[in-house]
Design a protein around this nucleic acid. Structure first.
Lengths: 199, 199
DNA sequence: CCAGTGATGACAGATGCTGACATCAGCTGC
DNA sequence: GCAGCTGATGTCAGCATCTGTCATCACTGG
């Protein structure tokens, strides 16, 4: 290795999280993050494409949990089962990786700044697109696959938001089952009126 | 009025759309947009909070179509009907306001740049939250309302994406019915396994 | 011991965005 | 008419984000 302390890729996100939590995202400059991590501003931008990206390091593992769950599902699985399995797999990774407290802290930082919300939404949109692509590869129609991708992310996100609510102690996957139940009830009203409406 | 040609608020988005379509979003500077509109860069930032926002002028009308449709629905309406009505109202506004060709051109500009996609996703997320809020005001439970807001936007977006596909001539609301049908089929698989699974 | 490699530092510059103050047409009250 | 106010715009200075380019230097392989 080089003449500098290794692990800059790990120190930078940690320094960023600390500073963002202390003073907020906009009140923190990239130079300050780099200083705390012991590198220069230029090096920060060698590791992360922009200032926001430092909060989204290592999301590939999270996204691949969704994908792998779909690819690993048995052949006859219904679309609803695929959605549930993918969301559950993503939730499991999230719970094990860093835990609820870390998720809460990270979410608080993101919730306080629209630029960060935008980045998170883009990541989730890409995840939904990737899920839809794997669904199509299994033979799901294009329309159902696109909606299935969106729904997977919606079920995950809605459950996640309740999972990190103050005082909540239930398991993330249990909360996803709750969201899925609401989805089932909602959609029970859509199938029948669509054919029987005004009959 | 002042000593300058009026209508800067209209000329700026038009100049921006032209330049973005010609050379792309990143290759266009705010100074160039302002020049074409006959104002200074500083004036641009008086009308729009940032460079991206110029493409999202006048979205309040679009969002209020969703909200108004929910508030105007009859008392006994099922959640699924509210979702369908809101998406249909938003679609109607979009079709009448500027038409499919304008939507295609605008979407092409946005699809070519991730910064613009982020902004659009943020607008849609806020719309989903606003829809969820109105659903809760009608007595829908928090869990169902959050999911209902997401679903409204998903149904709208999925149908919109097909609406602007090359060669597509069907009505936007007709495409939404297609998305809703896919939703019904998907969710038909979720209600029953949730209670009967492993029975 | 020497050339190559790869990560980092140093520096200059374009662009996005903001604050502060000046300017000037039209309106208002007298 | 005329003085003053108002509101939109221009002008200017400045900070922060992000990028291109080149130099530096520890480590590696021969």
């Amino acid at each position: 290795m080089g003449r500098w302390a290794p692990g800059a890729a790990q120190r930078l996100p940690q320094a960023a999280m600390e500073l963002f939590a202390e003073r907020g995202f906009e009140a923190t400059t990239v130079a300050e993050i780099a200083d705390r991590a012991g590198v220069t501003e230029r090096t920060f931008f060698r590791y992360f494409a922009d200032k926001r990206e430092v909060l989204f390091a290592g999301q590939e593992q999270f996204a691949s949990a969704f994908i792998d769950a779909i690819d690993a599902a048995p052949d006859g699985a219904a679309l609803a089962d695929l959605v549930a399995a993918a969301a559950a797999a993503g939730g499991a990774v999230l719970q094990q990786a860093r835990g609820r407290e870390f998720a809460r802290a990270r979410h608080a930082v993101i919730a306080a700044n629209e630029q960060l919300q935008e980045r998170e939404l883009l990541k989730l949109a890409k995840l939904a697109a990737a899920v839809a692509e794997r669904l199509k590869a299994r033979g799901v129609t294009a329309v159902a696959a696109q909606l299935g991708g969106d729904l997977t992310v919606s079920v995950f996100s809605d459950a996640f938001n309740r999972w990190i609510a103050p005082g909540e102690t239930r398991d993330l996957v249990a909360l996803q089952r709750e969201s899925l139940a609401a989805l089932g009830e909602l959609a029970a009203g859509v199938t029948q009126p669509l054919k029987a409406r005004r009959a």
